[in-house]
Amino acid sequence: MDSLQRVFGKNAAYWLIGPAALWLAVFFAFPMLSLLTTSLSDPAGSPITGYTLTWRVQNYIEVLGDYWPYMMRSLLYAGIATLLCLVLGYVLAYAIAFKAGRWKTVMLVLVIAPFFTSFLVRTLSWKLILADNGFIVNTLQTLHILGEDGRLLATPFAVIMGLTYNFLPFTILPLYTSLEKIDPKLNEAAADLYASPFQRFTKIVWPLSLPGVVGGTLLTFIPATGDYINASLLGSPNTQMVGNKIQQLFTTANDYPHAAALSVLLMAIIVGMVLVYVRRAGTEELL
């Protein structure tokens, strides 16, 4: 600190914060302000004539009234996907952290491997896998699990599955880092003290992995709620999520004020939910 102060003078802290603050101002605060003003503008304008800021709060009431089913669907799909990710991810992360031995690195690389391909390409390939005339649907039809005209694509199942698939690594990695830090000796000590395997998990492993659980579920739930790629590629018009609605309002309906209001609302809901969740999980220091 002393040497830094010699270089920058009395206001060293300002100089050090400067670049990040400028970055945030330009790429976060400024767009955010633009979004907020647009969301309070008169929707009677158009992208050509511009929108006038009339502090029209009704935009929010209107989008809530018109599009609440999309919002609920997003929260529901993202919620289910997050739970699935947590269950699947926890088992895998536990296995990698404690049971993988020399395979640990290989397994971690395999978890990250899908990132080498684009998100879009991976989602599109699910379209091929789940195709109506594809192997999976045909097999399920032969087994009479799916009806003759049954299908997987363009159903809520496909959308939730896509979300789960795409965001699973975001759950696994934080879970792995916090599980990996747990000292195996704690488990041994608990066993010496006659704790059952179940007790060892609920009293030692789970509480110690909570930061990973909270981090992983947040990293999954937040982007999954706003996601629109999965719903648009794997879903049908009846499984559209709030992201699809926002995208559509912005690009095809050219209704910027309502699109902005819906975006702000989504953000507010997510921030509210995250605050409650983190408080209840007792991990405020993560934020």
């Binding site: 300002y14 605060a29 400024f30 302000l33 050509i48 800021l53």
Partner: peptide, 28 residues
């Protein structure tokens, strides 16, 4: 740098940017 000072500074900066932006906004 006190936390309050920082927040005031930041808020002033954003407000300044915002004012410039709103002035330039108007019609398309």
């Amino acid at each position: 740098v006190s936390r309050r000072g920082l927040m005031i500074g930041g808020a002033a900066g954003v407000a300044g940017l915002g004012a410039v932006y709103l002035m330039g906004r108007g019609g398309g």
